[in-house]
Design a protein around this nucleic acid. Structure first.
Lengths: 156, 156
DNA sequence: AAACAATTTGCAATAATGTTGCAAGTTTTA
DNA sequence: TAAAACTTGCAACATTATTGCAAATTGTTT
């Protein structure tokens, strides 16, 4: 196959990720703009969660603050990203898994906050356990955040 | 006993709660001021969690915003209150149980956020379950927030 | 009970964060 | 490629949080 030749090439990787990116935007009926591409790309290559400020930094302020706010809001509405609970006054966002749909997220995985590197990581394979609630309470959705030291920081 | 006579009296209740309040402040080596008394009193009689804004409203703006910020900060440092994770950009605070100590909280109970009345309630008797983490992660503390409809709202 | 030291408060100024309306620019559609 | 639909950036504004400092309050000592 023709593609075989450039499989290890960075150009090939670039095309692959661009394709993924465009797919996500198109699947959600969003027009493809510079801002959305860059921000979504950031999420795709980030291992953890991102705050509004992270995005501004990592895009070298190429976009207006307002644009970033609105892009994040749009992505949340479409179910591309979800937000993660924090104990301070920040909002963290992370990519949803593929099977998330607008308004109906399946992101009930545990989030891990590393106290050393301060990164928030989605533990996609650890689901939030069910708990027995007192009489009268009707649960709908549960969030769980574990903090401690992540694998990377432990070794240092 | 002399106290028996006024046991059902509201004055008695008032004295009781004042005593509790002063005990907490003294135990934590905090000087007793109007602001600290009023804010702590609010927490003692509130079934759920409070945000900065709630406190301002409920004290009829008797205290400066800054004082409220600083009081909350002091209470957190001393382990009198703890904060609760939220997915929006708010900070919620709730009373710690008696056995909390400064820097070493034992508040690992589940929090419930009602989507109708919007109150956050501490489920003191529901402990956060342990989860098995991927290799390399060292847990330290876990937080869990369940949202849904609380008992009071369900009946309406 | 008064005076001193230590702490806390309120004010003012400043910073950081988030929202809205609207004109100009970009993307999509036909 | 032109028109329609949507997105962006700017400006103005609103909200939320932080800091320094003088005045007021609290705890302590005599």
């Amino acid at each position: 196959m023709g593609l075989q030749i450039i499989r290890d090439n960075s150009l090939y990787q670039f095309i692959l990720s661009m394709e993924k990116l465009l797919n996500i935007l198109k699947k959600n009926e969003l027009s493809v703009t510079d801002g959305r591409k860059k921000i979504l790309e950031l999420f795709l290559k980030s291992p953890g969660a991102l705050a509004h400020a992270d995005i501004e930094k990592n895009t070298a302020n190429a976009f207006d603050r307002v644009t970033v706010y609105r892009t994040l809001q749009t992505f949340v509405e479409k179910g591309i990203i979800h937000n993660i609970p924090t104990t301070d006054n920040s909002i963290l966002y992370a990519l949803c898994k593929d099977d998330c749909e607008a308004g109906h997220h399946h992101d009930n995985h545990v989030h891990f906050l590393c106290s050393k590197c301060n990164k928030t990581i989605c533990l996609d394979d650890v689901t939030v356990p069910e708990v027995k609630l007192p009489k009268g309470f009707m649960p709908n959705h549960a969030e769980m955040v574990v903090n401690g030291v992540c694998g990377d920081c432990k070794q240092k």
